[in-house]
Each structure stands twice: as structure tokens, then as C-alpha cells.
Amino acid sequence: MMKFLPSVLRSIRENAQPALRTFAAIAVLVMLAYPLALLGIGQLAFPGQSNGSVMMCNGKAVGSTLIGQNVTSPMLFHPRPSNESASGVDPHIRPEAAYAQIPRINSTTDIDARFIRLLVEKNLDANRASNAGVLAPDYVNVNELNLDLIQRFPEKYPGFCA
């Protein structure tokens, strides 16, 4: 073993310079230049998405489109219980689960059930469009649906988005 020591030491000496320099160059590139460049592009081209797809409702930020809210009001669509999905924060439910909630919302808000159903289908279609061509399953984004409801019927939802 001692026989190899000198050659190992020599290898370390030989590699120290190029390894350190290569490391430093790559490090600067990928931990600074790369994310900052993307930050610039993102903030310029997709400011909404880059900052978390925040929903504005009556001029107020009411959370992210993509992060489910623990909605308790019977007047709004409810997401899945957070412990049923993998992330626990997804705002998506199956179309059936959305349809099943329509009677409840109809009875608490008096909004025409057919209209609510229309909104659900609109959301469904929008999601299909955003997954265009990749054959993802059908789903409804509860956040978008609720936002739609609140913005369309501000009189039915007093105190929301406050």
C-alpha cells in the first residue's frame, strides 16, 4: 500500500489545479448565471407563472391558482382532503367530484345549477387545452372555479376575497 502512496499524492497534486478551476467555473455558471438568466427570462416573459400564479380577486391576492386552499364555506367548491393526494396541496379534482358539489353550491348560493355546471365544463375544457395533445386525464381546478364564481357573482359572495 505504501508503494502507491507517492503516485497517489502525485495524482492529487496534478489534479488539484484543473479540478478546482473546473469546479469553480462550472459552479459560477450553474449556481449563479443559470438560475439568474432564467430568473430574468421568467420575470420578463412569464411574470405571473414565475411568481407563483397568484390569483387576483377584487384587487386582492387570494393565493396561487396551483395551490389548493382549505376551503370550508359550503358556497365554494372544495378540493380533495389534503391527505388524499400525493402533494397534499393540489387544487385539482375529478369532474365527477365537481359535479357532485353543484347541488350544494346551488342550494347555498341560489346560482343556477346549469350555470355552475357550465363553469365546471369551461374549466374542464381550459385544462384540456393546456394539456393539448398529451392525453392527460380530465380534471377541474377548484381554485379557478371558485375564483370564477366569486368574480361572476360578487353579490352572492359578500365577504369573500376580503
Binding site: 421568467g42 407563472q49 414565475s50 391558482t65 396551483l66
Partner: peptide
């Protein structure tokens, strides 16, 4: 990013 993945500090 365009699909909603954030990029912010």
C-alpha cells in the same frame, strides 16, 4: 416556467 413552474428568488 410557461406552464406555471415558478422562478423567483
Amino acid at each position: 416556467n410557461s406552464q406555471g413552474v415558478p422562478q423567483t428568488l
